[in-house]
Design a binder for these strands. Sequence first.
DNA 1: CTAAGGCAGTTTACCGGTAACGTAGCCAAG
DNA 2: CTTGGCTACGTTACCGGTAAACTGCCTTAG
Lengths: 335, 335
Amino acid sequence: MERKGKANLEDIAKVTGVSKMTVSRVLRGGQGFSDETRDRVIAAADRMGYVPNRLAAAFNSVQASTLVGICVPRLTSGLFGHVLDGVDRALTRLGYQVMIGCNNHQPLEEEAWLRQVVSWRPAGVILSGRSHTPGAVELLHNAGMPVVEIWDLTTSPIDMSVGFSHYDCGVEVGQFLVRKGRRRAGYVGASSRADVMGQARMEGFSAALVLAGYPLVDREVLLDSPGFYAGYYGLETLLARRPDLDVVYFHNDEMAIGGLAYCQQRGIRVPEDLGIVGWGGMEAASVLPRRLTTTVVPTTLIGKQAAEALVARLKGEPVQDVTVIATRLVPGETG
Amino acid sequence: MERKGKANLEDIAKVTGVSKMTVSRVLRGGQGFSDETRDRVIAAADRMGYVPNRLAAAFNSVQASTLVGICVPRLTSGLFGHVLDGVDRALTRLGYQVMIGCNNHQPLEEEAWLRQVVSWRPAGVILSGRSHTPGAVELLHNAGMPVVEIWDLTTSPIDMSVGFSHYDCGVEVGQFLVRKGRRRAGYVGASSRADVMGQARMEGFSAALVLAGYPLVDREVLLDSPGFYAGYYGLETLLARRPDLDVVYFHNDEMAIGGLAYCQQRGIRVPEDLGIVGWGGMEAASVLPRRLTTTVVPTTLIGKQAAEALVARLKGEPVQDVTVIATRLVPGETG
DNA sequence: CTAAGGCAGTTTACCGGTAACGTAGCCAAG
DNA sequence: CTTGGCTACGTTACCGGTAAACTGCCTTAG
């Protein structure tokens, strides 16, 4: 009769001889019952292996669900792994469940994911970047739940934004390299079609160089995933065209390490013959034979702050709309 | 009256002058309505920005939800990022939503996560490893949903298993190194308390060495996260005790790369003075100055197969309980 | 001409939990 | 003795969607 593990409130109510409302109150830790009733209910729930049905709870009430969605551009990037970790730690602690998604840098895929997730009536969502389809924006406005845009800062967020300016990252590197005496800079990138954030870094980089009077000499942007091989072959291609470059800024650290490998193999001395600069601050970059010059992004912190902003808004606490996270240009031995 | 974005089936029904059951059938692509009715309903749903309520749908019916949970030991590991990617791609394509969790290699945290997730009545879950608390196992049995244990193979899975033997990975490396003439092997690991899988690799490694007559000389296992620094300092500590080692097997590639960095810095020639072997097959390892000898694990494939096994079981298709995924020992230039 | 069957729907009941409200019993103050 | 308030519950209605059963109406076969 006491079917293990499939009991619902009513079953427990029957067994303990109270109403299911009382069971509900006890199990959610409310009040309005005697200690004796509480003990009997809890014992029965335990014995019967009661598993609450959050579907029913969330479905019924205006009370927010404990579901939070997060969509990142790529799941295989080490950086986003840390972001996810920051989000997950912060939210798990508070009793939320995290639904993930990946948009491959495509706003359309983000919208498709959003439509699925919103149909679960989540408490809020975290998105990456600030490019969204009109449909996605409308959906979010109608849903009326907290939204945090992370990674790429925007001054006019849908709701809240936690991140930094990719453009400024590029500017900072450009200025740094000019100060270090570099005059003929190149850029090697890779974008799976629509990575506007990598694009922004390059634009900032280029703008800073123009301003300093030493404009970007050449660039090579591959239509490939931004990994080690793309860095290796991208640098090879670029140097074949312009052997006179004295520094190359890469889309990210993985690619920069690929570039380093190419230099090593061709006997190009780094940083004497050629400077190499990455972006992102992946751990590997700081233990390489030559410590990579790169911009360190506090990934876990971004995830944590995003989660906290979302929860604060849910609780009705005051939250600032835009949280700026400082990145750090770390001069290594390659730039 | 047509409140944008908050319409439900009944609102659409009223506007189009049919019953909500008809609207439900139309929107789910069923049958039993005229083309004209269908067009009117779809137009109204579109106009009113109808967002289906999966909470209600999943709640009501025996029909499975489209939620799948996956729990990994660490979110910051590049390997699990690829596993997640494989799972996500496979499931998204089929209309499922993915809930993530992270157990930090602790079965207790896995159980806590499971209790949360099961309360959402998911269609199935994917777990990492084969160590689970009794409470978790009971919960899963009672829930009666598909369960896939990935990463570490088990011959008696709770339900299904997709992975490989960590022990065998260690054995293979041990045999390989003995064949290459190594005689005095060491091991450098790091375990945040309860990483039984890394432990299994070391045991297999050790067993193979014993069998060959050249038992493991010494090992250094740090209580730290298995990253580059742990590899660096682990090797330093180990070599301080046993400078006569001729090869060191590392917990994973990150640590092996840290070890390589240490050798580079101390002028230890690799592989002449000391062999370095990693595990995992992270991309960086194949483009380093010296290509790392390591075991490549088809991470994305594991995620994909796990997702497919789960869905097959949901559809009632025949599925084999245990799927063995082949790992590949790739001799590089360091071992 | 009538029964059978198909089409295009409608109606009803229900899923499990929760908010809101109702009520019985008890005690103390007026 | 009555009233009012408190405690400890019980009752009812409802959330949004879906399965299953039901209802006219029209066509077609016998």
